[in-house]
Structure formats: structure tokens, C-alpha cells
Amino acid sequence: MTTQVPGTVLLAHGSRDARWREPIEAVAARMREDDPTVRVSCAYMELAAPDLPTAAAALIADGATAVHVVPLFLGMGKHAREDLPLQLDALRQRWPAVAFSLAPIVGESPELVALLARIAIKS
């Protein structure tokens, strides 16, 4: 059995404002600080680069054989519900030897809900 080499795409909506991307990129930087061997890339659904196929291609070029997409959305909107599954299907067709997986949107994580509540109470 071959060991898979993991890569992670942190996927967010996107904005023309470069400052909007800073928190997303900070998550990737923190992942690299916590584990210098981690392969992580940020991607955006629209209005910013790179897009999901470009980010996946970069991870695969870096040796990833399994790509886990983590949607950094607070709610289950059209992108997460409709667009993302179509994009993952296209990625699986383009790279059939790569295992693509999709995490639940972060807004559905009980840990994130609890953290946001704690932050709101303190503010």
C-alpha cells in the first residue's frame, strides 16, 4: 500500500480587497508554524487568486497525492452547496490518481461556534 502525501486547500469566498485575504493566509501560516512539513495553499471562489484548481495544481506539483479542501465559510451558501461539489468533480476528473476530500464548512464546527461565542462575549 502506498502512503498518501497530504495537502490542504483553505478555500474562502474571495474579495478584491487584499486585506480581506489576510486572515485566510494567517491560518495557512499558522499551519506551517505548527507543522513545517505541511503542504497548504489558500484558494478563493471568486474575486481573488488563486482559484481552487490552481491551488490544487500547486499542491500536486509539490508532491501531494491527497488534497483535503477545507471551506472557510460560516454558512452553507450557494458556493459550498452547489459550486464546490462541481469543482471537486472536475478536479477528480483532471487528476484521477489524487484523492480529493472535502471537510464540512467551518461554520458548522461546534468548536468554531464556541470560539465565536467566546469572542463575542469578550468584545
Rank of each mutant, 00 (worst) to 15 (best):
M1C: 12
M1A: 14
G7Q: 10
T8G: 00
T8M: 01
V9C: 00
V9W: 00
L10D: 01
L10S: 00
G14C: 01
D17N: 09
D17C: 06
A18I: 13
R21T: 14
R21W: 03
E22C: 02
P23L: 07
P23W: 03
E25G: 02
V27S: 01
A29Y: 10
R30F: 03
M31A: 15
R32V: 04
R32K: 13
D34A: 15
V40I: 14
S41K: 11
S41I: 04
S41W: 05
C42W: 00
A43C: 06
E46S: 11
E46T: 12
L47D: 13
A48E: 15
D51K: 01
L52N: 09
A58C: 05
I60F: 05
A61T: 05
D62V: 06
G63N: 08
T65Y: 00
T65E: 00
A66N: 10
H68R: 11
P71M: 01
P71G: 08
P71R: 02
L72F: 04
L72I: 08
L72Q: 03
L74D: 08
L74A: 07
M76S: 14
M76A: 15
K78N: 13
H79K: 03
A80Y: 04
A80Q: 01
R81L: 14
R81M: 14
E82I: 14
L86T: 15
Q87N: 10
L88K: 05
L88G: 08
D89S: 12
A90Q: 13
L91F: 04
L91A: 06
Q93F: 07
Q93N: 12
Q93S: 12
R94I: 06
A97K: 07
A97M: 10
A97R: 07
A97C: 04
V98T: 05
V98G: 05
A99L: 12
F100K: 00
S101G: 14
I105K: 00
E111T: 11
E111M: 11
L112Y: 11
L116E: 12
A117H: 13
R118E: 15
A120G: 14
